[in-house]
C-alpha cells in the first residue's frame, strides 16, 4: 500500500530533502504532497487523508505547534501519525509538541536514513495500534 505523505515546511530545500529521502526508499512507496505554509496546510488537511504528516515547527505565520491541535481535533486526522521536524533541539518545543499530540520529534540536522527509520517506526506503531 502506498504511503500518502504531506510535508508542511516553508523551506523549499527542506521539502525537497524530505521528498527525496522518502521517494528514494522504494519500500515506502511514498506519495508525497507538499504544503509550503501553515495556511496551505489548513486548506489541504480537511480535504485529504494522509498516512503521515511531516510538520516543521518553525514556520512564519502558522507554526507547526499551532497545527497539532487542529489536526488532532479533526475526525479525519485524529490518528494520523505526525512527525515534527525542527531546527531547534528545544526541549520546550519538543515537550509541547508531544503533549499536544505529535508522535515523534526529529531535530535538524538529520540524515535521510534517520528520517526513513523514524517513519518506519511510526508505521510500526500505527500498525500495532490497529491503525492504517
Amino acid at each position: 500500500m502506498p504511503l500518502r505523505v504531506l510535508i508542511v515546511d516553508d523551506s523549499n530545500a527542506m521539502r525537497a530533502f524530505v521528498r527525496a529521502a522518502l521517494e528514494d526508499d522504494p519500500a515506502l512507496q511514498a506519495q508525497v504532497e507538499e504544503a509550503e505554509s501553515g495556511f496551505e496546510a489548513l486548506r489541504v488537511l480537511p480535504r485529504q487523508t494522509f498516512d503521515l504528516v511531516v510538520l516543521d515547527v518553525n514556520m512564519p505565520n502558522i507554526n507547526g505547534l499551532e497545527l497539532i491541535p487542529f489536526i488532532r481535533s479533526s475526525e479525519r486526522h485524529a490518528q494520523t501519525p505526525l512527525l515534527m521536524i525542527s531546527t531547534e533541539a528545544s526541549e520546550r518545543d519538543r515537550e509541547r509538541a508531544l503533549s499536544l499530540g505529535a508522535n515523534r520529534y526529529l531535530s535538524k540536522p538529520f540524515s535521510s536514513e534517520q528520517l526513513v527509520d523514524m517513519i518506519r517506526q511510526l508505521r510500526a506503531d500505527a500498525a500495532d495500534a490497529g491503525g492504517p
Binding site: S11, A13, M14, F17, N58, T87, K108, F110
Partner: peptide, 19 residues
C-alpha cells in the same frame, strides 16, 4: 529568523561552516 533558518538548512545539507 533568517539566520535561524539558515542554520537549520546548512546543518541539513552538511555545510558545516555555514551552520
Amino acid at each position: 529568523r533568517g539566520v535561524h533558518t539558515l542554520k537549520g538548512l546548512a546543518g541539513m545539507f552538511s555545510f558545516e561552516r555555514i551552520a
